[in-house]
Amino acid sequence: MMREVPGELELMAYADGELDAGALERVRQYVAENPSAAGKVNLHRKLRETGRRVVAGTAVPAGLLGRIEGLVDEAASAPMRPQRGWRIGGWAMAAAAVLVVGIGSVVIWSTLGGRGVEVVRGSDLVPVGWVESASKVHIECSKHAAHFAPPFARVLTELPESLRGYLGQTAQCPDLSRMGYQFAGCGPCRIPGGKTAHLLYRPADGQGRGTLSLFVQRDEGQLKVDGGKVYLSRDASDGTEMIVWREGGVVYYLVGENDGQLRSAAGAMGMRVRI
């Protein structure tokens, strides 16, 4: 009796271990007796194995990992979120004292809600690594419009209640239109310190002045900074700056792409920064 000759697809399926028991034995025998078929099977396997090897080392970027973790965290806390009809919360940012945490040096001040604030020197209250990390996340996330998507409110005035659902704590959301910036969206994120909401601001005129990020976390004592003060921290390596303050059960981190922009933002929020 003449044996059925396996076709090309059947040989491929044999090489990939996809044949059922009935066909398997038939093709196995054919391949064992036919060097040409054995060569094809071997070639299929080589292509599969070598293909796997050459594209295997594609690592997930750290920024993406943080954003996805943020999304998953956000989903996990979704039951805490109110359904709809969020109250309109207002931006009542009182301004502040600013403190420069250089490489271990601190200089500044301002007023928070009209209160005077003391100057703190020699503080290392804000880890330098946090400044660097927040700056990187700011730059990375800003590239991805999908990061700033629902379920967060799109309208700034609705965002404080939206944040309550995410952080379990309402937060103030500054209006930076005074400095020509508009709110571009909010997304779940992660920087050192814990679960984070990431507010993004873009120049209203679309000009290339760079974006601003305000990271908001529930205050769980992650930073040993005094409430009612504003701190200006500087990354030791490249001088990147970040403004940090805690108020009303929330910790805020403001990051920009250059010092002038950050100071303008501070000014728009009623802070006065003096170096």
Binding site: V55, T58, A59, V60, P61, G63, L64, L65, R67, I68, L71, V72, K143, H144, A145, A146, H147, A149
Partner: peptide, 28 residues
């Protein structure tokens, strides 16, 4: 599954930024 999803996205788009966007959209 994130490494698998990212790997596929990267080799489909052939661009890291597009792949990140795509992965994020996928998880959303």
């Amino acid at each position: 599954e994130l490494p698998t999803v990212y790997r596929m996205a990267f080799h489909w788009t052939l661009n890291a930024a597009d792949a990140e966007d795509l992965v994020q959209e996928t998880y959303l």
